[in-house]
């Protein structure tokens, strides 16, 4: 029996001079939720596209339930459900018509198709609105149909490419709950996101990507250990960051200081000890601290530690 649902081996993909994916490798065990976390442009969607057989890798290969994305594309597609980042639906068809069409594309026919469409409508909570055209739905409802399509043929593996982008908090909560529900049904979920909280909440394992590479890989706890359990202090000041940046780097207990878009981020062993020293140093430099936020170690800090930049859009 297969241990891993997905095995990615040294994938490369370039578009001209741009190396979108540069030697990515990871493994996803059966029945787990695996997140690819990274900012926009990190190479997550390109990776997913190769694993969906939409793009052919320049180098490397991947096995999805034992099927090679290079040599057995139909085999890969038969075990796969994909929830793309975009609302990939036909707006002038109703939810039921969309699901029926996509069900046929996944090989379902007749009574089996009809009953599965009914089931999926129930799962996504749109039975009452099944006859309405998708074009008239809210963003959240469209997202639900978008996910429903991928569930029609009960795939063994589901890819979800940033499924919560641009939707309201309630719909987002529903989607995150449904991802957990899929895992509980035994499906393997490969989830891409640039929201650290989602990756933390959902994932059994996480690969952090940046500039086409996997820069860290492990469970949430394992990744957080990379930054050594440091606290993250985010501050804004009433002056140019350059006036205190170098001085703060010399403060006892401070491990790293970065500035981005007028916000200073300090990684420190103990924020309670460091914070008074930061106030003192800034006063000596004639700078006033206007806001302070302290955060326990998390993936954001890991990303900051590894790349020197914040994990954001």
């Amino acid at each position: 029996m297969l241990q891993n649902a997905i095995e990615v081996k040294n994938l490369h993909k370039a578009f001209g001079d741009l190396k979108a994916v540069d030697g990515v490798s990871f493994e996803v065990a059966q029945g787990e939720i695996f997140s690819l976390l990274g900012p926009n442009g990190a190479g997550k969607t390109t990776t997913i596209s190769m694993l969906s057989c939409l793009l052919r890798p320049d180098e490397g290969d991947a096995l999805v339930m034992g099927h090679s994305i290079k040599d057995d594309q139909m085999g890969v597609k038969s075990v796969l459900g994909v929830v793309p980042q975009e609302i990939a639906l036909y707006n002038d068809l109703s939810a039921r018509e969309n699901l029926t069409f996509w069900g046929k594309m996944y090989g379902l026919r007749g009574p089996a198709l009809r009953s599965r469409v009914d089931e999926v409508l129930e799962i996504i909570g749109l039975t009452e609105r099944a006859k309405d055209r998708v074009g008239k739905y809210s963003g959240g409802m469209k997202r639900r149909v978008n996910i429903g399509v991928a569930l029609l043929h009960k795939p063994q593996v589901i890819y979800m490419d940033e499924p919560t982008v641009g939707i309201d908090p309630q719909s987002r909560r529903n989607i995150l709950d449904s991802v957990v529900a899929l895992k509980n049904q035994g499906m393997t979920v490969l989830y891409t996101t640039h929201y650290m909280e989602e990756a933390q909440e959902l994932s059994d394992h996480i690969a952090i990507m940046d500039i086409g590479k996997v820069i860290a890989y492990g469970t949430n706890a394992e990744l957080v250990k990379i930054v050594g359990q440091m606290d993250r202090i985010t501050l804004t000041i009433n002056a140019e960051s350059g006036r205190v940046l170098e001085a703060w780097k010399k403060v006892q207990g401070v491990k790293q200081v970065t500035a981005q878009d007028g916000t200073l981020t300090v990684l420190a062993d103990d924020s309670n000890q460091v914070l008074p020293r930061l106030f003192e140093t800034s006063a000596l430099n004639g700078v006033r601290i206007t806001t302070v936020a302290i955060q326990e170690p998390n993936l954001e800090a890991v990303f900051l530690h590894l790349t020197g930049k914040a994990l954001r859009d």
Partner: peptide
Amino acid sequence: TRSLQRLLTT
């Protein structure tokens, strides 16, 4: 709408 891309994943 990228429905074509989705079709190609089936």
